[in-house]
């Protein structure tokens, strides 16, 4: 009796070879090292954030003017907007921080930047305290957003720096992928 062996292989089931236990962790590491930055999108994001904050300041100014005339007080709506912007920024800062930590293995550098960010965060706490006391102060609002922007820029700058350094060292490496 004979049969066509090609049909034998029509349904090739997984032969049940088991991956080593740590394969997932290992892959996560590899994945993190192969960070594919999409700078265009990020810049657009930053641009939108800046535009949003400018728009917020303008609306806030408009509120102030209105308040003087009609004494309508809506601090909650402004606070909600500020909270939203704050949330977005913190998310982005957090992401950039993770990228940064991934991009370098210089513990000292990470420490220095952690310190810088912590200082800015302390400032921010002070600022938001005074913002709660006086929601109508445009200067405080500007400082708040400026503080967040500083943090983000700080992380972006250092990452660019690392990137340039890496590019210099990698010039002679060929892409094996």
């Amino acid at each position: 009796m004979k049969r066509d062996i090609r049909e034998l292989f029509n349904d090739i089931e997984t032969e049940g070879k088991k991956l080593p236990k740590n394969h997932r962790m290992e892959f996560i590491e590899k994945l993190n090292f192969s960070t594919i930055e999409k700078p265009k999108k990020r810049h657009l994001g930053l641009f939108l954030k800046v535009a949003a904050s400018i728009a917020l300041i303008i609306t806030f100014g408009y509120y102030m003017m209105n308040q003087k005339n009609s004494e309508i007080n809506k601090p909650t709506s402004i606070q909600v907007q500020v909270q939203q912007i704050e949330k977005d920024y913190l998310q982005q800062i957090d992401d950039e921080w993770k990228n940064f930590v991934r991009a370098t293995d210089d513990k000292e550098l990470i420490k220095v930047y952690q310190q810088k960010l912590d200082d800015l965060n302390e400032d921010y706490k002070e600022l938001s305290k005074s913002f709660k006391e006086n929601t109508n102060n445009v200067m405080v609002l500007e400082d708040l957003i400026g503080n967040l922007q500083n943090r983000l820029q700080l992380l972006k700058d250092i990452q660019n720096h690392i990137k340039i350094l890496n590019e210099k060292t990698n010039t002679y490496e060929t892409l094996t992928l």
């Binding site: 070879k17 991956l19 080593p20 394969h23 290992e26 892959f27 590899k30 994945l31 192969s34 594919i36 992928l177």
Partner: peptide, 15 residues
């Protein structure tokens, strides 16, 4: 070796 090849292939595929 097979595991490494598999993982590298995933990275390549994502690119």
């Amino acid at each position: 070796e097979a595991k490494d090849a598999m993982q590298e292939s995933f990275l390549k595929a994502f690119l």
